[in-house]
Design a protein around this nucleic acid. Structure first.
Lengths: 151, 151
DNA sequence: CATCTCGCAACAACAAAAGTTTCGAAATCC
DNA sequence: GGATTTCGAAACTTTTGTTGTTGCGAGATG
């Protein structure tokens, strides 16, 4: 099963965007991610609709953050991406009337609900500024300073 | 993203298997699940290799449980199915050397690790006998008694 | 007015899972 | 012993969702 890494990728991009001057074009972001600009626009569309970024057309255009990183949580971005399914596993509903199926799905469902709540809470508790701080701390610890530049 | 419901389905099947006489053929199980016998064999193969079921060929053959339900946990079945990926979301590794990516993935990763641990612990704590008990309790509460029969 | 850039829609390519077909082997039934 | 049932396994096809691609339009800038 192919897994969705848009959340990880977009968090990465947003933090870089905060550290560069001016707008980041879909093209630059696509190069950084090894994909193409249409895919970037598709993904960023949700963030734009959520009010986290703004896009400008024409020369010097591209994407810019519309809020400080401290006012964006990981959960915000997750939701802006369409609140995608967290789990690769689901319960089967072959026989909704079957009490065996119901008992199985009740146990599985409560486990997944608890895990989902934990994830959501954690996502909500981390701002992008926290991630940027963590980046700074890692940066301070090393002598060579690699980042993937938003080329 | 298509989600894997084999765990739910197999738990359902195993509890029914415990309640019928004799072996359940791949054909009957396939009918119950609305699939075909080859898919059933493919899925049950893991449970056979894990020692939870046994298969017999020929007349009267099929699948039988090799242990009491009380000695099988949901986690056992999950693992017997190949320990499939629990999450539909993963971290991206576009730039393993980039400290921003590392900071993002560290935060995401620890959230997923905690959620995974919670799920695994929960799976380990529930035996199929627990599920069967839950079924019996639901059964006792109603007047009409529907189950999906292993036809 | 040429160029850059996003927006959107339509289409193609790809990958993973599920489903199907076919053969063989072993067990049972008559 | 021969017909039937059933699993085992390999090869192949179908399906489905995502990603990637192409093309065109619209707005902004130099």
């Amino acid at each position: 099963m192919r897994r969705d890494s848009r959340l990880s990728r977009m968090l990465h991009v947003l933090i870089h965007m905060d550290r560069i001057d001016g707008a980041a074009t879909s093209d630059r972001i696509a190069q950084m991610l090894g994909t193409n600009p249409v895919v970037v626009r598709r993904t960023m569309a949700g963030l734009r609709d959520g009010g986290y970024v703004h896009s400008e057309k024409g020369h010097g255009g591209g994407w810019v953050l519309t809020r400080p990183l401290s006012e964006i949580t990981m959960l915000d971005i997750h939701r802006a991406l369409g609140n995608p399914e967290l789990f690769a596993i689901s319960v089967a509903v072959d026989h909704p009337e079957c009490l065996v199926e119901q008992a199985v799905n009740s146990a599985l469902g409560s486990a997944f609900d608890a895990a989902e709540q934990l994830l959501i809470d954690k996502f909500a508790s981390v701002t992008l500024a926290d991630l940027a701080d963590e980046f700074d701390q890692r940066m301070a610890k090393i002598t060579t300073k690699p980042t993937c530049e938003l080329v």
